[in-house]
Amino acid sequence: MAEKFDNLEEHLEKFIENIRQLGIIVSDFQPSSQAVLNQKLNFMISGLQDIEKCRQQLHEINVPLEVFEYIDQGRNPQLYTKECLERALARNEQVKGKIDTMTKFKSLLISELSKVFPEEMSKYKAIHGEDAPS
């Protein structure tokens, strides 16, 4: 899996470096730079072709759209991962709290019902087993 990303990363880095050099050439253009510029333009096209080839290897990779929003705002996309993990843990804790509360409620309800309806509750326990109050 990592090799696929490494390959894409390598091509992207080369492409960016080529674009940077193109920018430098263009920023103060000299007549002698025309040949180099033409070469860089064709390097750019070959770079795009290489990136296009990487697409086939990364078909099963899904990127959440929210990550793009972070990048568009100039924010570190790792913050998205961080917030996702924090949100998952918070929700996990909330659900655990609910389950614990409901478990306590169930045991309390069964114990109280056993006092009021002992016969019915004994039958109920016979059906559901002794672990019913848990």
Partner: peptide, 18 residues
């Protein structure tokens, strides 16, 4: 990601990008 402070800016994530 949650143990230490993640830097806010995109340039911290991609320092080599011009």
């Amino acid at each position: 990601f949650c143990g230490k402070k993640v830097k806010e800016k995109l340039s911290n994530f991609l320092p080599e990008l011009p």
